[in-house]
Write a protein that binds this DNA or RNA. Structure first.
Lengths: 106, 106
DNA sequence: AACATATACCTCGTGATACGATGCATTACG
DNA sequence: CGTAATGCATCGTATCACGAGGTATATGTT
């Protein structure tokens, strides 16, 4: 998938991945894989960005001797998802503009 | 609208704007305004990029004493639009992942 | 015991790119 | 005669996805 097209959706995808229950880096990547593939470097960049924006909080816990950093969505994070849904209407209108009348060339 | 969300759609929007008939910078901005607002600097960057990618060709013509640079879509440009439509299915699947089950928090 | 693979975290540098700021020239309007 | 609208273009900046690289532990596998 085109990198550019993913932009603007990735942040929200990560928030959606921790929406129902707290999760950690490795798990988030696995959960998102069926929808979007993203590398670890990309994910950790996004997580840090979202934390700086107060859309999630972090907590470190031990699991099988290894440390895991769990991410928890905040109210602001939920609001971000809602905002995304509102903006989606504009996205759809753009999509319709692009696709209308293109059948003749297909 | 979120800048990031526009990315990946802008190129295709510009191609769609010249799909039915050749157009020029100023006109393209006006035609796209109802769907996406983009500045002149952004548009000319995109047009140059699309020309470099052979998705459009240019032609300069005089109109009322002023020079206009007309842009004409190529076959590769049409194919780009078709590609975009295919990728859209993935976008929809991402959208559904993000929105499913969010009702409880709305 | 030695080695690979999976789990789990993180940083740095690079390239792509949207956009504001800025500049230039002509026409139209008040 | 000034101001907006038309029409083109460049440069610098900030944002951001990602590959490359680094660290460490647990679990197979030979």
């Amino acid at each position: 998938m085109d990198i550019q097209l993913k932009r603007g959706m990735l942040d929200v995808c990560v928030l959606a991945a921790i929406r129902d229950e707290d999760s950690y880096g490795y798990q988030i990547i696995k959960d998102l894989k069926p929808y979007v593939e993203l590398s670890e470097s990309t994910l950790y960049t996004i997580l840090k960005r979202l934390e700086a924006a107060s859309m999630l909080t972090t907590r470190t816990a031990e699991h099988d001797g290894r440390l895991r950093k769990y991410y928890h969505i905040t109210d602001a994070g939920h609001r971000r998802i809602e905002e995304f849904k509102k903006e989606w209407k504009e996205v759809i209108s753009i999509y319709q503009f692009v696709t209308k009348g293109e059948e003749e060339h297909a």
